[in-house]
Design a protein around this nucleic acid. Structure first.
Length: 873
RNA sequence: GCGAGUGUGGCGGAACGGUAGACGCAGUCGACUCAAAAUCGACCGACUUUGUCAUGUGGGUUCGAAUCCCUCCACUCGCACCA
């Protein structure tokens, strides 16, 4: 960039040699015409299958750079695998239900369906301009009745199988969005979308019993070796298996008992109190007769979970006056209501052992409760050891613990559980952090839950003949709450079972349900059942799934659950939905702020040579802010449609692949895009002088430069194949640059040297295929020109194969080290005799100098790589 | 607090335990041009430059370490009062 380059560059080079504006649509039409990317639901051609899928987009209106990155990565894989002879399923669809459509309706009066379909139409055009190798005949949107109707059918199957149930439950209620939120969508006690403090509310909801699958969902992670370790770990933590015991403590007044969950039954002798959650029935009972207790409980509940996080250290409790008896030592302990005990986890009650649990210790110190250590750390003396303000949760030996004395905690845990079970007052259990998945949403723009509530018959499913149960179109958004519920007639139906007036369910599904099986539907998108069994059994699992890390837990876990559930209902036989997962990084961009602190768009900025920036129109000094994720609020977005219009799809694809490894965050830079654009033009120019027509036989005589080019060609085949196999697309890009440099060198060496025309023709024939996954349009354009239109479409051509004979060089450079330090390099024939190589190494003047007067005690020789002399002293 | 990951030139990054910095971006100089853009060529880690030092820090293993092991530091991400 010279003195000043606007970030919004002029259209480059008035008359580019390569006219991508004409070429790209032409090749897209050619692929379409030839149905290059179509596959059958149940193929019979015998080719191995490969299912590539990128996370389908939410139709927000326009594609963003994250989409460009996601779909470029997937397209490289799809095109590469196709060239390698796989039958590739590469579909696209729309995750089309959800709140933004309703917000648009409320804010702008446009119907959610119209808003959504308009967005889809626009985004489809934008995506198609990227030149993606997608089988568009499989496209669907989750708001298509033909999709959500099958989802309703699937739900009924799951309901019948007992995988779903209706449950009265406290739910997380978002008072701004007026809807229920899954635990997963409550972030720090606030709604993930609205940011409002979440309230607790009791509602009848539909729940998928995902916890039934918790053991399977956890254990299967071990075998998912083509998933990032990070994601598997996040899922394992989320599922959260813990081993412990449930123990029942009888109330001393004989009025009942309280059951606690603990992972440390070995420390039962160190108990000093029992604590229950504010929502626990005991707390409610106490509060009923005690105003002070009631106030405490109310205080805990009003603060909700958010305060608990904000005030992590502030432990509070209320002594109920009740007492329980510890079955192990027969002593009595107080029962407290404590704000740090969670009703949702375990039994909602704990026994407190302050010496060996930090939270219990904090609590005990605050309320002056007894602290009795029962695990003696190694090297400590039983008589003098005491716990001050740091609980001991490590190893040691049990003491002060009756029959457990002398045992290690691990052993003591088992012994304690055995004793509890023997006495019939407790048992060893496995506890899970994962909660069941509540899917009821009080929303219009979602899939209607296909049930009817009848006073006499209870819950009755909508008859199959009435599916799809369509959303009514005539809804209003003039007041808060669920438009389906406000609709004058929709919910009033006759019971399908007894015929009496009944009420239709007005809740719709969480949109995560829609995205939990779409990958299966893509295998047979027109089927009049949820999935065609033969199609899903052929195509699933998805061989390569690609998307953002932000879906590492929820979407992927729900999809894994659905795959199992659909196995139980007999819809498919795959165990896991996604055999391989790749999580891409974000696309970032510089952000800019004007003097008054307002965010500025990149188009408004002029970057100066000295690194400063000024406003294009006003000339004011602009602060260049952090490089961060593109977002509308920071105004640091770059519109892919505009980039593609200005530079072409191949340039956008090339840059996004070249910048850095795809799993890392990347920075979108104008100079990088320009560099990519220049390279597309350079390749095209290089090809303009290339030999045209068919190659014929390899000439008998080849000049060294021609042989070198041929070696470069075949080495490049190997290195790019390797890079693509390993998702090292930035390395593949670098190898293409090197290859282009080799072609330039060859041309310069002399285009009329013996064998050079043939070698160059071969090189270009290989080049177009090697770049085709990344720059498909340019590959076709060059190929067509060089073959004078005679060649098949590159999109339908095979992958080049390297000739092993050409992978061996004439000579190799060997590094010569003395004591591991480089002293020179020598050039020898590949596979030269060790003795000859060592002699040549010793003959190198630098090496000789370094060895002068020294005694060589060891010679290390690695063929074709290195020689290392180890000297004495 | 628990867990995981990452640290390499001005920048993005390469590198089966074997010549660190491939390739690109930015930059410098030159050619072409009236001039610019584009294009082409050369240079481009640091220094006390026949060499020395360099892959966050300090150690270790090895003939040889960016790479393997340990310490520490920094940053990033995930979970987080989960009993």
């Amino acid at each position: 960039m010279s003195s000043s380059t606007t970030v919004q560059a002029e259209t480059p080079a008035d008359a580019p040699r390569y006219d991508f504006r004409a070429a790209e649509p032409r090749w897209q039409a050619a692929w379409n015409e030839a149905s290059c990317f179509r596959v059958e639901d149940v193929p019979t051609d015998g080719r191995p299958k490969y299912y590539v899928l990128e996370m389908f987009p939410y139709p927000s209106g326009k594609i963003h750079m994250g989409h460009v990155r996601n779909y470029t990565l997937g397209d490289v894989v799809a095109r590469y695998k196709r060239a390698r002879g796989f039958s590739v399923l590469h579909p696209m669809g729309w995750d089309a239900f959800g709140l933004p459509a309703e917000n648009a309706a409320r804010e702008r009066g446009v119907h959610p369906a119209k808003w959504t379909w308009d967005n889809i139409a626009n985004m489809r055009t934008e995506l198609q301009r990227m030149g993606l190798s997608i089988d568009w005949t499989r496209e669907f949107a989750t708001c298509d009745p033909s999709y959500y109707g099958q989802q309703q059918s699937l739900f009924i199957d799951m309901l019948r199988k007992g995988l779903v149930e209706r449950r009265e439950a406290y739910v997380n209620w978002d008072p701004v969005d007026n809807t229920v939120l899954a635990n997963e969508l409550v972030i720090d006690g606030r709604g993930w979308r609205s940011g409002a403090l979440v309230e607790k509310k009791k509602l009848a909801t539909w729940v998928f019993r995902i916890t039934d699958e918790a053991p399977e969902l956890l254990s299967a992670l071990d075998e998912m070796d083509r998933w990032p370790e990070r994601v598997r770990l996040m899922q394992a933590n989320w599922i959260g298996r813990s081993e412990g015991a449930r123990v029942r403590f009888p109330l001393v007044d004989g009025s009942g008992e309280i059951e606690v969950y603990t992972t440390r039954p070995d420390t039962l002798f160190g108990m000093s109190f029992l604590a229950v959650a504010a929502e626990h029935p005991i707390a409610a009972a106490v509060a009923a007769g005690n105003a002070e207790a009631a106030a405490f409980v109310a205080d805990c509940q009003s603060k909700g979970t958010s305060e608990a996080v904000l005030e992590t250290l502030e432990k509070k409790g209320f002594d109920t006056g009740l007492r329980v008896r510890n079955p192990f030592n027969g002593q009595d302990y107080p029962v407290w209501i404590a704000n740090f005990v969670l009703m949702e986890y375990g039994t909602g009650a704990i026994f407190g052992c302050p010496a060996h649990d930090q939270r219990d210790l904090d609590f005990a110190r605050k309320y002056d409760l007894n602290v009795l250590p029962v695990v003696l750390p190694p090297g400590e003396d039983a008589a003098s050891f005491h716990v001050a303000n740091k609980a001991h949760d490590g190893v040691g030996t049990l003491f002060n613990s009756g029959f457990l004395d002398g045992l290690a905690p691990d052993t003591a845990r088992k012994a304690a559980i055995a004793k509890l079970e023997e006495q019939g007052i407790g048992r060893g259990v496995v506890n899970w952090r994962l909660r069941d998945w509540g899917v009821s949403r009080q929303r219009y723009w979602g899939c209607p839950i296909p049930v009817i509530h009848c006073d006499d018959c209870g819950v009755v499913t909508v008859p199959q003949a009435d599916l799809p149960l369509r959303l009514p179109e005539d809804v209003t958004f003039d007041r808060p709450g669920n438009p389906l519920d406000h609709h004058p007639t929709w919910k009033h139906v006759n019971c399908p079972s007894c015929g009496k007036p009944a009420l239709r369910e007005t809740d719709t599904f969480d949109t995560f349900v829609d995205s939990s099986w779409y990958f299966a539907r893509f295998c047979s998108p027109q089927a009049d059942v949820p999935v065609n069994r033969a199609a899903v059994d052929h195509w699933l699992p998805v061989d390569q799934y690609i998307g953002g890390i932000e879906h590492a837990i929820l979407h992927l876990l729900y999809s894994r659950y659905f795959t199992r559930a659909m196995g139980h209902t007999g819809h498919l036989s795959a165990k896991e939905p996604f055999a391989g997962l790749f999580t891409q990084g974000m696309v970032n961009h510089e952000s800019y702020k004007g003097a008054d602190g307002r965010w500025l768009y990149p188009e408004e900025i002029i970057r100066n040579a000295d690194g400063t920036a000024t406003h294009k129109d006003t000339g004011e000094v602009v602060t260049v802010g952090r490089i961060e994720a593109m977002s509308k609020s920071k105004r640091n977005t770059i519109d892919p449609a505009e980039i593609i219009g200005r530079y072409g799809a191949d340039t956008a694809r090339w840059f996004i692949l070249s910048d850095n490894p795809p799993e890392r965050d990347m920075e979108w830079t104008e100079s990088g895009v320009l560099g990519a654009y220049r390279f597309t033009q350079r390749l095209f120019r290089l090809a303009e002088t290339a030999p045209v027509g068919t190659m014929g036989a390899l000439p008998a005589e080849c000049a060294p430069a021609a042989r070198n080019l041929r070696r470069a060609t075949h080495r490049t085949i190997v290195s790019i194949t390797d890079a693509l196999e390993n998702f090292a697309f930035n390395v593949a890009v670098a190898r293409v640059y090197e290859f282009a440099n080799a072609l330039t060198d060859a041309e310069r060496a002399g285009a009329d040297l013996p064998g050079m025309a043939w070698a160059r023709a071969e090189a270009f024939s290989v080049l177009v295929r090697l770049i085709s996954p990344m720059m498909p349009h340019l590959a076709e354009e060059i190929s067509a020109r060089l073959s004078e239109g005679a060649a098949a479409l590159i999109a339908q051509s095979g992958w080049p194969e390297a000739d092993p004979a050409l992978l061996v060089a004439d000579s190799v450079k060997i590094a010569v080290q003395v004591m591991g330090k480089l002293r020179g390099t020598i050039e020898v024939a590949p596979g030269a005799e060790e003795g000859d190589v060592l002699a040549a190494a010793l003959a190198d003047p630098n090496v000789a100098r370094a060895l002068e007067g020294k005694r060589v005690v060891k010679r290390v020789y690695v063929p074709n790589r290195i020689v290392n002399f180890v000297i004495a002293g």
